[in-house]
Design a protein around this nucleic acid. Sequence first.
DNA 1: TTATTATATAACTATGTGCTTATATAAGCA
DNA 2: TGCTTATATAAGCACATAGTTATATAATAA
Lengths: 114, 114
Amino acid sequence: MSFEMGDLDEVSQTLKLLGDKTRLTIMKLLEKQECCVCELVEIFKTSQPSVSQHLRKLKDAGLVKENRKGQWIFYSINPNSPQHELIQQLIAFVPSQDHELEELDKKGLRISCN
Amino acid sequence: MSFEMGDLDEVSQTLKLLGDKTRLTIMKLLEKQECCVCELVEIFKTSQPSVSQHLRKLKDAGLVKENRKGQWIFYSINPNSPQHELIQQLIAFVPSQDHELEELDKKGLRISCN
DNA sequence: TTATTATATAACTATGTGCTTATATAAGCA
DNA sequence: TGCTTATATAAGCACATAGTTATATAATAA
């Protein structure tokens, strides 16, 4: 077998987490590159606490990790999650969300720390 | 690409449906063979209405289909669902639930219509 | 026909979820 | 030191969800 067999509870918990359109889209966005909270707030046109709460659920489940850079906190996929392979396969079914990041670029709202 | 790209809403809706342990297990059981409601009631040790309501959600989403045989109604995976490929891939991560059906056999509770 | 078995549906309830507003924490800047 | 920006957390509310009990429908058997 090419992947670890998941535990039933862990698999259903992961599906429940990604059974939310916002969180599923976040994971798809992070597939390509890390994002900070304010970028996601802009993309989802929702409140900052709402985005933070979604990110916390993903982080509590170990699906993403955070990386502070100055005043910003960047989130990225955690490749060491036991659920990583499942997630990769799932988000392969989600259409690309790159246009959202391109929109941000056009508005000059991308955050870059080098 | 070896599969149809899903619509974002349809994918998240499917994940939400299978983000429930009972429904995820039902889909895993049906992967191997059709089951009738009373078998599932026995397996999940829950009420008959509870199982019926889970099955209705799966049927409303087009993930399963029903087939009446006399007084029993057998449910099976709907291979024509647009979500079929996604479902197949994700239930591959769920451990086999065959032991549940074997238990039923031992107790003489399997329903067979020939 | 009546009784029994299998399943579905409706109404209710308890719990969970996602959002909002308000506030706290933390980093950077004047 | 304030002031601003970015993020997190807490509390409250509206709505969704999964279970329960009671009842309806449908098939079968006596």
